[in-house]
Write a protein that binds this DNA or RNA. Structure first.
Lengths: 268, 268
DNA sequence: ACGCGACGTTCCGGCCACCGGACCGGGTCC
DNA sequence: GGACCCGGTCCGGTGGCCGGAACGTCGCGT
């Protein structure tokens, strides 16, 4: 039994609206809904499940999915849909990501060999950090972060490096909204955050102790592009038990200088 | 309407599919054209350039590109378009790719440390190998291959491993078309290729000497999924000057056993 | 066996989102 | 000035998209 049609036809209980209406009466809007209901872990979804989650008519989902399968953006495996290999392939061509990763990878491996800890490369996307690459040392973190994963800007070392050395407008935007409390030690007072960022500017690096995850800390530096603007951040994450923030900061700034030199020749 | 052939038909060789009609009078077809004209190196394209290459009306390209920028699949940088970060993000969620990479990465790094050469992880896509991951040793290759790059099946070690241990139908399909001569030493005679594959089946690994690139050779093994079917291949590539095929084969089969154990628990 | 529900799939008339030629303002080169 | 190309907008016609309805087929509980 359907819920009786309300005027305005809102299918999905979707009160939040961080991104403006993925206009569902345009083809592209529907495709967007379909591709984005595949969460990080929903590996496969049935046709009906897709229709339910997107709020689209089953016939529409069927038609569009067929076309997407034909393209390779979706794959079918005994009746279920999942994201297709061609998405990966096209995604790897994205220049901002590819250039940064290719340049940073060798340096990240150096860092891992010096520290035996986990090293992240991240950029700003929207009001979050987006991890472009991760290289782990021998000491694996229990619930690992993910490449292409996201975290808030204000509670991660990479995020704070990007905020401290990034565009002023970005900081204003982050400050405009309440700061989420991720752990008990997360900085949620705007004034305190501003102090931390000021300190980061003085030191040249940002740090974070159990503000994103209990038991772990991180140190991060900004990476400047050809124009001098900050384009990414590089961080070392370690368990607090064996952390050595000063050492990490020293290693990072060495690597950072090399990286800045490499980036200055590139168009980002 | 799919050309569903006779019941029980074993060979699914689709007669007409050189380019599967990127139907340009459907919205999705146009979007496909737009996203796929960004080659591996065309980092940015202007609106007019996009219209020219896709063959679409300028107004249409403009309208669709706007919507794609809004979604994040494209980005704008002083008037030019380029592939957007969200493509990378969605592409990283593709399960087949993510599972294989996450499992193989540590083992690939082991291999690199043992050999100091370049290690590739590849799958079949269409009639080519698609590289999912690459880990380089200290000895960089001059014109390096790329993650998400493609190569023919018949001239690479990974490709031959996938052919020798993969579905019979795939081999038939490859044999049906003439084999491209990539280097003077590429095997282009179907009979010879069949012999090489038979030899690979006996040895348990495939090898290639200067068939893909002069001065380099590779050794590859297949990786079997939970059902026992081959799902990917792992290879070591080295300059012929310092190559040691037997050693690579030994190291690979050790790693292959570990990988097969890991994969048996996974749904691929 | 039977009904039942949920599934994937197909059909088709209506309509609106999409189309693209024409146009505009601005920049650059000759 | 004029010829050219650029990014961007407008608007009337139309065909691609839409989605309710119906179909065949499973697997389940009765």
């Amino acid at each position: 039994m359907e819920a009786i049609a309300k005027p305005g036809c809102l299918f999905t209980a979707d009160p939040r609206e961080p991104h403006p209406t993925p206009d569902s009466n345009s083809v592209l809007g529907k495709v967007r809904l379909i591709l984005e209901v595949f969460g990080l872990d929903d590996e496969t979804l049935s046709l009906s499940e897709l229709a339910r989650r997107t709020g689209l008519a089953k016939a529409s989902v069927h038609r569009l999915s067929q076309e997407l399968v034909h393209w390779g953006l979706l794959e079918r495996r005994n009746g279920e849909y999942r994201l297709g290999m061609r998405l990966f392939e096209i995604g790897q061509r994205v220049p901002r990501q590819r250039i940064l990763r290719d340049l940073a990878r060798p340096l990240m491996i150096d860092l891992v060999q010096s520290t035996n800890e986990t090293v992240h490369l991240a950029v700003v996307d929207g009001l979050e950090v987006l991890y472009l690459e991760k290289v782990s040392g021998g000491n694996q973190i229990s619930r690992p972060s993910r490449v292409a994963g996201r975290m808030p800007l204000h509670c991660t070392a990479t995020g704070k490096a990007l905020l401290a050395f990034g565009r002023r407008a970005l900081l204003d935007e982050v400050m405009a909204a309440p700061l989420a409390r991720v752990t008990p030690r997360t900085t949620v007072a705007p004034g305190l955050l501003a102090q931390e960022l000021q300190r980061a500017r003085e030191l040249g690096y940002a740090a974070e102790f159990e503000q994103a995850r209990i038991g772990y800390m991180s140190v991060a530096i900004p990476l400047a592009g050809a124009t001098g603007a900050t384009v990414a951040a590089l961080s070392v994450t370690a368990p607090t038990s064996r952390a050595n923030a000063d050492r990490y900061a020293g290693l990072l700034s060495l690597v950072g200088r090399r990286m800045t030199k490499l980036l200055s020749a590139q168009e980002i």
